[in-house]
């Protein structure tokens, strides 16, 4: 990509505490996020992802390294200049963080109030935003009267109020049920396409990444382990951390006994429509044991993945691999979990 990034993290380090009690939360993070994309950061809890997103608007000050927003290194800005920059970076949270003593409308007005927008103008804009997120009838409701999904919609409207270039989402759907999660993600995607706003999503759920992200970074133990387009990382995860997140099948593999090779197959788009495994069994005349199977939808394309246990006969294994090569199915040998 030749575009200039909207957010660029360079050699970012964050250590909490000092001396022997120091805990490294982020270690040499380098990420470039480009305008208009939906960038996902996924990791298990404790991996440092929340600290990472908080560094992007300096809610958390990095110990070293720089945070460049739209060409400006914001780590060296004065408080006042930083507050101005923050108006171009909206943020939504897992626990919504709405002002409980203000109505939905007044919550959306809040960032405008801080930005010094005249009250009348702010109200009009807030009303329009509530309409955008589908809550035109909830203007006068207090957060306590709204459901989780509705609260998050208010929070999204609030984040959009100052016309930000970027919206940071910190586990924004983690407190929501699956259906509500879907609708919030669909809303974010719509806003991204309609307004061109860049979205950064922090999550521990692969489903969220699959559904709306263009690119993904996998963070594990304070490091970025892997980064790239979602379908690529999904098809060919290189690191153990990535595999663990993408194929939460470790438990299954653990319980499998025997000696046959374990093979992980990934079917992309059109292959998912053909009876690959059935044909393979018929053609090679050898049964395989299906250990794990799942299909995912990434960027509106269907991907299937499957773990099969091959027979011990080496000749049969060779036949099977040849067949898979012929069908252009990506495969990779999976280790038995020895623990």
């Amino acid at each position: 990509m030749t575009q200039t990034p909207i957010i660029e993290l360079k050699n970012l380090n964050k250590t909490f505490g000092t001396g022997e009690e120091a805990v490294v939360a982020l270690d040499d993070i380098n990420i470039s996020i480009y305008p208009g994309e939906i960038f996902g950061i996924i990791g298990l809890s404790g991996a440092g992802k929340s600290t990472l997103v908080r560094c992007m608007n300096l809610l958390e000050r990095p110990t070293a390294g720089s945070v460049i927003f739209d060409g400006t290194d914001i780590t060296s800005l004065s408080d006042k200049a930083l507050r101005n920059i923050r108006r171009s970076i909206g943020m939504i949270f897992q626990s919504f963080n709405l002002l409980m003593q203000r109505t939905a409308l007044d919550n959306v007005c809040f960032p405008l109030e801080i930005a010094g927008v005249p009250k009348k103008e702010a109200k009009a804009r807030a009303k329009e935003l509530l309409k955008t997120v589908g809550l035109a009838d909830k203007e006068k409701a207090y957060p306590a009267q709204l459901s989780g999904g509705q609260k998050q919609r208010v929070a999204i409207a609030r984040a959009l109020a100052t016309n930000p270039k970027v919206i940071l989402c910190d586990e924004a759907t983690s407190a929501l049920d699956p259906t509500t999660t879907q609708s919030i993600l669909a809303l974010l995607k719509e806003l991204n396409q309609r307004l061109g706003v860049t979205i950064v999503i922090i999550t521990h759920e692969m489903k969220v990444i699959e559904q709306i992200c263009n690119r993904v970074a996998i963070i594990d133990k304070s490091h970025i382990e892997e980064m790239g387009p979602v379908d690529e990382v999904f098809r060919h995860p290189r690191t153990q951390a990535a595999k663990k997140l993408i194929f939460p099948s470790g438990d299954v593999v653990e319980e499998v006994t025997g000696y046959g090779k374990l093979l992980r197959l990934v079917f992309d788009g059109n292959a998912a429509n053909r009876p690959i495994i059935a044909n393979m069994v018929l053609k090679c005349g050898s049964p395989v044991n299906i250990v794990f199977a799942d299909t995912k939808r990434i960027d509106d394309k269907i991907y299937g993945h499957m773990i099969v246990q091959l027979p011990e006969n080496e000749e049969k294994v060779r036949q099977i691999l040849t067949y898979l090569d012929m069908e252009e199915i990506a495969y990779e040998e999976e280790e038995y979990d020895v623990q």
Partner: peptide, 14 residues
């Protein structure tokens, strides 16, 4: 709630 304060800081509140 600490989160609400954090949210308002993220919006550029002094």
């Amino acid at each position: 709630d600490r989160g609400v304060i954090e949210a308002s800081l993220s919006m550029g509140a002094s």
